[in-house]
């Protein structure tokens, strides 16, 4: 098994951003659930984010919404790769 357990232990790494689910929003600050651990993050860089979205959080701010549809597409593509 190549994929090692969780990346959370490396959360202090500066370019590593981690995905979590927005569970509530108040004054541009969201409560975010990272697999059971709740943390606050600013939505200043992502004003369109809404409750239920999965977002990537870096240094206290959500920086991008996770596209689960595209993620699934990537997985499908991986399965269908053929080498001639």
């Amino acid at each position: 098994m190549l994929v090692r357990s969780s990346w959370y232990e490396l959360r202090v790494i500066m370019c590593l951003a981690i995905p979590g689910k927005i569970i509530s929003i108040k004054d541009k600050i969201a409560d975010i659930d990272f697999g059971g651990i709740k943390r606050k993050a600013g939505l200043d860089l992502l004003p369109a984010a809404k409750i239920g979205d999965y977002v990537i959080v870096h240094a206290g701010f959500a920086i991008q919404i996770l596209d689960t549809k595209d993620a699934k597409k990537t997985l499908k593509m991986l399965k269908n790769i053929k080498i001639k």
């Binding site: 860089l45 920086i63 596209d67 689960t68």
Partner: peptide, 18 residues
């Protein structure tokens, strides 16, 4: 782009503007 679930071609224009 391999990391399509997070990276859009245009990036995050709002963050860039800010």
């Amino acid at each position: 782009i391999q990391y399509k679930k997070v990276v859009k071609k245009e990036g995050n224009p709002f963050a860039m503007k800010l």
